[in-house]
Design a protein around this nucleic acid. Structure first.
Lengths: 158, 158
DNA sequence: CCAAGATTGGTGATGTGTCAATCACTTCGC
DNA sequence: GCGAAGTGATTGACACATCACCAATCTTGG
């Protein structure tokens, strides 16, 4: 698979491997930190972060899905598990009978407050502090280009 | 969570979001391409790639795990599923009674041969071709630094 | 008003990944 | 040789993600 078709140059090959490695290992590191400081998984943390940023610490399922860029059903499943662990609560929505509000519980709030500082520190330590300002800027450009290509790709009728 | 503790600068915030986005969307794009050309998932593809590179297209479970940097049990589960779909076969190992060889079947070989060119094209198109040589080089440096920090992190007694 | 269609959220099935435990075999120290 | 420890691989339980589908509700054109 390396000689027959034009695969990747050696350098590209190295970069690609490192990309795969990094994208595999970073979640592991973040998960480990979250577990050390709290009982949250990374997805739990994302949900609670999003909810914590709004007035009342609650949000409709669909809005949460849009904010996180998750599928609705993923939110639904995940919220169910989080509810079972007492991190959030579901409430009926007054204005729309179909709707559901996801509300952070006191326990959920405690968890994310315990987890957040270490999480921030870990992201900074692993990802940003070792980079120069120029590197951060360039990485940003590369990633934002990549993201926009990936979004097009995603929209694309197949 | 943004004002109280020193979280991330606005720029870092943006880069971080794009990182998360990119690492979420790229697998989706690769998966879509693989499904279009073959019946393989990305992990299937990784397994078959690794196996295809060695003499006899077969490997011990543990060696496969090391090559892919997967947990043994992940390999075991995954190989079982692939075996059910006729992509690989397990064989007893002659030299070590505990061991098992994972062998690519004819069907597995057909699948990866159908999938590989499109996969390579997709990686190049999305990841590399839009980047300048300098960007590739810099991305490479950033990633390899990140990977080595993550590896240390992973070793670290906790 | 009301039937048709869209939207919201949830469910079950399936595939995937981790962890802890287990089983079978090998190796090592005596 | 032989028991203890180590190693290779599998398993089961669970967390997570996606997909296809469904029920309830809302909205809208006639």
């Amino acid at each position: 698979m390396s000689a027959d078709s034009p695969w990747l140059t050696d350098e590209q090959q190295r970069v690609w491997r490192d990309w795969l490695q990094a994208t595999a290992l970073l979640p592991v590191a973040l998960h480990a930190q979250l577990q050390a400081d709290s009982d949250l998984s990374f997805p739990d943390f994302e949900v609670l972060s999003e909810l914590s940023e709004v007035e009342g610490r609650q949000m409709r399922v669909g809005d949460l899905a849009r904010a996180l860029q998750w599928e609705r059903s993923r939110v639904s499943h995940h919220v169910k598990r989080m509810e079972a662990r007492g991190l959030v609560r579901r409430e009926e929505c007054a204005s729309d009978g179909r709707g559901a509000q996801v509300v952070v519980t006191a326990g959920g709030r405690r968890s994310i407050e315990r987890a957040a500082p270490g999480h921030a520190r870990t992201v900074r330590r692993l990802m940003f502090e070792p980079l120069s300002a120029r590197e951060v800027a360039l990485l940003g450009e590369v990633l934002s280009g990549l993201v926009s290509r990936l979004r097009e790709e995603d929209e694309r009728p197949r």
